[in-house]
């Protein structure tokens, strides 16, 4: 869908408490244009709960239910049950960060998926607990600095898409803010499918990733170009790649060096200064290579 056909209605209002250059703000605006006004959000503790701003004001033009970290998906199940009783078709959406999705909320999320609750779970992944001051999460990549991994994280992130696939969801997708048309299409598609859906949006964070705030979209596009993040959809267990990721998978374009992505972010600066850490840079590249090797075999 060309940009001019996207809704003019703004359901995320200007003047919020988000940092300048926030990736989540872009994700929210695009997703809300696809979801429309007949939507209820459930937001656990995460950056978005801060972005809403404080009582008696909110920057959201739709109803938002703020809930404890671990309870977001359970809350969505309850909202859906209540709406069904009232005979309403309103979209129920959980908007949660990667900490609430990968770590703290995964138990209730697994439960809601197993109950086949008709809702859309959107995880905006900034690869750390940004809201509380940049701590390591299950989504933080290998080698990244956070305040709790100050020498660089030693482990790799977990594969949330594979966890979602294990629940046999009708629709799973990944997206990123640098490709607004693609993100809009995926949210719209998820909206049209009944049952539990999962979308993960890579959402770069200027204070957490340590890059200049004007480069949020550039960083997002670079994640795709280097192959660090892949644009994919899983429908009924079939994985399909789209956009630039499809071209990379089919070998039509060569991915940019992963080092470009690493060196652009201050959170990986210790891999380059004061001495180049050849071993860890190589290990990071291997992790990405292995991921694409699996993708070529039709796996995650």
């Amino acid at each position: 869908m060309p940009l001019r056909d996207l809704s003019k209605e703004e359901l995320y209002l200007p003047g919020s408490a988000a940092c300048a250059g926030c990736g989540d703000g872009i994700a929210l605006r695009i997703a809300l244009k696809a979801l429309g006004k007949d939507t209820i959000f459930t937001v656990p503790a995460c950056c978005t709960s801060v972005i809403e701003s404080s009582y008696p004001n909110t920057s959201f033009g739709i109803p938002v239910m703020n809930i404890a970290f671990a309870a977001s998906a359970a809350c969505a199940s309850g909202i859906r049950a209540g709406l069904r009783r009232q005979g309403k078709e309103t979209q129920v959406v959980v908007w949660a960060g990667d900490g609430a999705t990968y770590d703290i909320g995964v138990a209730s999320l697994s439960g809601a998926w197993e109950r086949e609750t008709d809702f859309l779970y959107i995880c905006y992944n900034n690869q750390m607990y940004s809201n509380t001051g940049i701590q390591r999460s299950g989504a933080t990549p290998f080698g990244a600095w956070t305040t709790t991994t100050w020498k660089g994280k030693e482990e790799s992130e977990k594969d949330m898409i594979a966890i979602a696939m294990a629940h046999h969801l009708p629709y799973i997708a990944t997206a990123t803010i640098g490709y607004p048309e693609d993100l809009h299409r995926k949210v719209q598609k998820a909206k049209s499918i009944p049952g539990p859906k999962y979308i993960e949006i890579l959402s770069p964070c200027p204070p957490g990733w340590r890059y200049d705030m004007s480069k949020t979209v550039e960083m997002s596009k670079l994640s795709i170009a280097t192959g660090v993040w892949a644009l994919l959809e899983v429908e009924e267990g079939n994985i399909t790649f789209n956009g630039r990721s499809k071209a990379i998978l089919e070998g039509k374009i060569k991915p940019k060096p992963v080092e470009d992505w690493l060196s652009g972010q201050g959170r990986f600066a210790h891999l380059f200064k004061p001495k180049r850490d050849e071993e860890r840079i190589k290990k990071f590249e291997e992790i990405i290579d292995q991921k694409w090797q699996r993708h070529r075999e039709g796996k995650l």
């Binding site: 209002l13 200007p14 809403e52 004001n57 909110t58």
Partner: peptide, 12 residues
């Protein structure tokens, strides 16, 4: 219940 307004934080 919070109400939606422009500039919920301030004139940013």
């Amino acid at each position: 219940i919070s109400r939606p307004v422009k500039g919920a934080t301030e004139k940013t």
